[in-house]
Write a protein that binds this DNA or RNA. Structure first.
Lengths: 193, 193
DNA sequence: GTTAGCATGTAAGGAGTTACATGATTTT
DNA sequence: AAAATCATGTAACTCCTTACATGCTAAC
């Protein structure tokens, strides 16, 4: 029992793998860095951390880091990965199942691609692409079938969704061909001025 | 009790407002036409229909429609809106609260804009825009703050999210200015060849 | 001095999925 | 003859949010 948020656990382990952190900051990173978890609440995060402790994948490293905690605010609990935790993270990053192309799971996997084998990266990128192409096909047959009886706004929404999916497919295509050529990551566009 | 899926109820009423339908088809339309409910299951839909019946907002109009049901497959249950149901739908379409700019709720509201007052449409479009601009601001400060310690893939994911949000803001801007000029819906792009 | 941000947690409940149960019809 | 699609429904379970509870510090 207690299959509490596999995906959330994966994301938390991944962020802690980069550097030790306390809960409050973890939440902020989950909300911004990762596309998934736009609005994750503490009511999910803290119980998740409790479970990870129980499993022995993280431990409390409260006062020890390079973090400046001179002015004492409320005692922050800094979490760090155990050896087991690092192993679990690698297992999760290395495994690509049919759920890995779901919107949220894809985002999380992608965010940790730097610690994923190239071969697995490729499988996930391709899986994601065919998932989106499936979606596109559905939208297209649906809008062909209902052409007449659909009002302008519904059509506009569908068209917008179609365009977004098309853009993501192109993005994936770039990433896939770069991956095949052994290049790390193509920068999507020129950086903001 | 039984505050079962306000949003789902709204969407179902909206689709039935267009034309009577049975559950199976309703699900398909919810999955394709509306951006939300990409993967709605029967386990959510049928209980929802049961509740709507209980509230007297829809009724079973099984054999009566213009639908061809010559070759009898399994008896389909076709639902239709009651007068109360139409009223409820109008109330919901007309009301714009702070939740109306959430991803899913926005999509559903937008899909039914044809039956929404122009003034309300404008409020929802503007609310959605500022929600997205808020999100953009968050992403930008976060990526400025972490510039160094972020690996290429995490950065690429964030950049992609940023671009998607930017595109949606531009899309909204077109819709808003068209709405102000009293034009119905600008076609987003040239139709597919 | 009061609002906003930092920081951690719990209990109750909402909204949905998965897996199950059933069976006809059309396509391959 | 097998597989896919049509069609309806229930029970158990999962994951997450909301609302609550607490208290300190920085900015306005």
């Amino acid at each position: 029992m207690s299959r509490r948020g596999e995906l959330l656990e994966f994301a938390v382990l991944g962020l802690l793998h980069e550097s030790p952190m306390h809960g409050y900051e973890l939440r902020k990173r989950l909300n911004t860095a990762l596309g998934a978890f736009r609005a994750l609440s503490y009511g999910s995060l803290y119980p998740c951390l409790r479970d990870l402790l129980g499993k022995g994948w993280i431990f409390e490293a409260s006062g020890g880091g390079s973090d400046v905690l001179s002015g004492s605010r409320r005692a922050r609990i800094v979490y760090e990965l155990t050896a087991d935790g690092k192993e679990r993270f690698q297992d999760m990053a290395e495994s690509a199942g049919p759920t890995s192309w779901d919107d949220e799971e894809f985002d999380v996997h992608f965010a940790f691609f730097a610690r994923t084998k190239s071969e697995v990266r490729l499988r996930i990128l391709e899986g994601r692409r065919s998932r989106l192409e499936e979606r596109l096909a559905n939208i297209r047959t649906a809008s062909a079938r209902n052409r007449e009886r659909m009002d302008l706004y519904t059509a506009a929404l569908q068209r917008h969704g179609e365009e977004s999916a098309e853009r993501e497919v192109r993005w994936l295509e770039e990433l896939i061909s770069a991956e095949r050529r052994g290049i790390a990551v193509p920068l999507t566009t020129n950086p903001p001025a």
